[in-house]
Design a protein around this nucleic acid. Structure first.
Length: 169
DNA sequence: CCCACAAGTCGCT
DNA sequence: AGCGACTTGTGGG
């Protein structure tokens, strides 16, 4: 498997995100995780293909708008290697509009496997593109916050920005 | 209210 | 093959 991903930073008021692009589109987006943060080494000397620059521009706009609770056009997403199950889950998440939420249970029903709630949680955690693929809009059954692999702080902040009310916790 | 348990699916060891 | 993961519903103390 070739790992020719191009890394590009995106500076926002919430920190610097790292976007990774493959030949097919946006493959990964990372939170400005202060600790595990590694300075992006943009494709060793190689020039960045024009289409990637173009995607990056779209990604940057989309990310900033999303951080402001607005929806926006997304760049092509490269779900390379993902299983059909995961893609189904992520597709459902993309349908959630800003300010709205769904539960893991609702997602599992939407993909025709009402009992696969736990698997949905797993797929969520495996989501390589947080924020743009709104895994943060997925709440536990009774509108509880649930968990978030990118850090609960982010989930809270993102939901607060979108005006979502949480039942508790 | 809090704890324990089981169930469907994926990915890592 | 076994276990944990961003869960959920049920049962008991």
């Amino acid at each position: 498997m070739k790992n020719n991903l191009v890394e590009l930073p995106i500076s926002t008021r919430d920190g610097k995100f790292i976007a990774r692009y493959s030949e097919n589109g946006l493959a990964e987006l990372n939170f400005p995780n202060a600790k595990a943060f590694v300075a992006p080494k943009r494709s060793k000397g190689g020039p960045i293909p024009a289409r990637i620059k173009n995607w990056h521009r779209v990604t940057e706009t989309a990310l900033k708008k999303t951080l402001n609770g607005k929806k926006s056009k997304l760049p092509p997403l490269d779900w390379n290697g993902a299983t059909e199950f995961q893609k189904s889950v992520w597709r459902q998440m993309l349908k959630i509009s800003a300010g709205k939420t769904k539960s893991y249970g609702e997602i599992s029903i939407a993909i025709g496997k009402p009992k696969a709630v736990r698997a949905v949680g797993g797929a969520c955690g495996a989501n390589p593109i947080p924020v743009l693929v709104p895994c943060h809009r997925i709440l536990a059954a009774n509108k509880k916050l649930g968990g978030f692999s990118g850090g609960l702080d982010w989930k809270r902040k993102l939901l607060a920005t979108e005006g979502v009310k949480l039942t508790s916790a």
